[in-house]
Amino acid sequence: MRDMVPVLEARGTRVPSAPFVRFSTLWVQVTGTWCNLQCVHCLNASGPRDPWLKPLCAERVRHAIRESEALGVKDIYFTGGEPFLHREILLLLGFALAAAPTTVLTNGAAISEATIAALASLARDAPYSLEIRVSLDDVDPEGNDRVRGRGAWARAVRTIRRLHAHGLLPIVAATEDPGGEGQVGPGLYGRLRDFLVGLGIDKPRVKILPLFPVGRLASRGGDLLSEEMLDGFDRARLQCAEARVVADGGVYACPILAGLPGARLSAGDLEESFRPAPLSHPGCVTCYETGMTCRNA
């Protein structure tokens, strides 16, 4: 307890919190903020140089998975940074899949044909579903690469095709600005869906995520949540009511908060982190307003 960081101080009023309802989802911030891309809207300002949040060692990840399985976890998600930069990612995914259905979030830029073949055999042999979620923000290479970096579109699309060819049914995830121009949701959703069908993907899967005023977009951050705003709102619906994130240095309430000062709920023990989470970050407003979930469905 000694090394717990104090909660961000409230602006005059009490910081509201989300109750801890139950433990359903384990997030593993496996590569911290180490990434091969440097997207302008990145939730945790990941990039190729000097990650401010360090990757996890394999034993730390295995420990968290064992602990989660004993606690009755329902699903496990690997994120970063870019998880496929982790040297032991395939072994770790296999370890996770023995315990629970597992999803890995990737930009698709650093996955070789051999890795995809290994993923396919993992998926075939595992007792539970393996989901691979590839980020792609636009059907148009230029629009996508403006956000995600030059060449990102071509590499992601190549990975999507290869995953499909191996029967892995990738979920294509796109970020959309809820305050942005034009139609929210269906517009981008429909375009991506049609695009995937055009690639010959007969089971197109698309997930739209809202843009968060965090990470590289932190300057867009507006208000924080207050007790008054949450009046009458069912806080048990927030994902932090049933998820925890293991990252370097501790356990956090959600992937966006991982590593942020004041957001740590325990120094490493999962069960110790099962307590109300302060909703003290601008990102909490986006979750509250959009009702979004980082889970697949």
Binding site: S68, A70, G72, V73, D75, P101, P127, Y128
Partner: peptide, 14 residues
């Protein structure tokens, strides 16, 4: 509760 996304650890807890 789908077959491929309901782990035994969760079932034991339920």
């Amino acid at each position: 509760l789908w077959e491929s996304t309901t782990p035994n650890g969760l079932l034991r807890r339920l």
